[in-house]
Design a protein around this nucleic acid. Structure first.
Lengths: 228, 228
DNA sequence: CTAGACCGGATTGCATCCAATCACAAGAGG
DNA sequence: CCTCTTGTGATTGGATGCAATCCGGTCTAG
């Protein structure tokens, strides 16, 4: 039975990669906020923008639909996915249960240097006033706790949940900063401390509580999910 | 901002549904064991088999790739996904954490009639000698605990994990039955009892332990994942 | 006899073309 | 004035055809 060992995608560019190129570009655009949730996506526009025909564009849309970033309706079109408060809470509750597990897998693999880097990120997050920078640092802080263990399924899943909520996290961040919310930073420092001691149980508890508290906070701001 | 309210897929057949038709058919075929993991999938063959051109077939392959049922390699082809023991354990560990949550959401929605049906399924499972029937009953037993709550994300995720491990569950079932393993049924009855009392904490505990014990059992049979 | 290069068939990837469908606006009827 | 209908333009969906790539066997050289 074949099935090539190299799970690595053969060529990152060239022939047989147009769909992936478009998908990567569009994903980045959505995560960066260039496209807002609910916004219509036209195949022709993307095709011209990324120099491809509509066929690979449609492939890319299918991929992003599977990731939950795009919503397709047959014979009608594609939209940047919009999620409700209920769905967002659901995703956070899933994260509460699985991110601690992923952290546990990574804990023994994190070097002292990695931990120092985490501490640095937490401090930078506390220092910055820029929303986009905070978002990038927060993402780097959490996801860099996760990318050492070879957990393909769990890693992809967590990344997907982060991506699907990215736009709304941007919105929350603005609100939280306006409210002068500080406990987030406290929790980050507690998490770094637990990781430094390689205390898996405590790290799980802190991380779970961190996500949980964020969820409870965002439930207080349903206006972020308003339909305009 | 548009984005039609009807999230329901417009037409299950007719124009604009060829990709979905092929995807559904191929998914069913894979889950039923018609295609074995590692088996090559040729676009032309599927196109002829399902009366479509290769374009919707490629769309279907992308969808199933996203579900983890198919593995695509650029310029090379498609294979029915094969998972390793490590990946399977990972999926079971994810299930240990999220299926109890999903059960909790559904618990208040289950009627007394639903609970009676669960008990019936558990007994039928205990009675049958046929592997395929056991698989179908087990799937019905667990998934029917989950499909009442409108948890789109969590429900889809759990279903995906069941699908990705379906072939290997079939193989385990054969081994377990050969070994005369009976504790599975005990756990099912405990679960029904906890559900009947609407005892969420106990139900979570039992379900988590059920999945966990299955995972530990399957780790004792790595031969199921042999590459042939 | 083995290892490496090479070539032909098979298969996938993409662009173009045409058909099917839908959204929207204008008009007829109540 | 509102509602339903109808037609048109825009957009998506699918089939075909060609180019790019890969796999397998064969030949050659060492």
């Amino acid at each position: 039975m074949p099935l090539p060992a190299r799970a690595v995608r053969a060529a990152p560019d060239g022939h047989g990669a147009a769909g992936l190129r478009v998908a990567d570009a569009l994903r980045t655009a959505i995560l960066d906020g260039e496209f807002a949730p609910g916004e219509r996506i036209r195949q022709e526009v993307l095709a011209r923008r990324y120099g491809a025909s509509r066929v690979p564009v449609r492939e890319a849309l299918r991929m992003l639909e599977a990731e939950g970033l795009v919503t397709l309706v047959a014979n009608t079109g594609a939209w940047v996915s919009r999620i409700s408060l209920a769905e967002c809470e659901e995703m956070y509750q899933i994260r509460e249960r699985i991110e601690p597990l992923l952290l546990r897998f990574n804990l023994p693999l994190l070097s002292d240097g990695d931990v120092a880097e985490l501490a640095r990120l937490a401090e930078a997050m506390e220092a910055t006033d820029d929303v986009e920078e905070f978002l990038a640092l927060d993402r780097a802080f959490h996801l860099s706790c996760y990318d050492l263990a070879p957990t393909s399924v769990l890693g992809d899943l967590v990344l997907q949940l982060w991506n699907r909520t990215q736009h709304y996290r941007r919105a929350f961040t603005r609100v939280f900063r306006a409210e002068g919310e500080r406990s987030v930073h406290h929790e980050h420092h507690l998490l770094v401390a637990a990781i430094r001691r390689r205390d898996a149980d405590e790290a799980e508890r802190v991380l779970s509580g961190h996500i949980r508290r964020t969820r409870l906070e965002l439930a207080r701001h349903p206006e972020v999910f308003a339909d305009d």
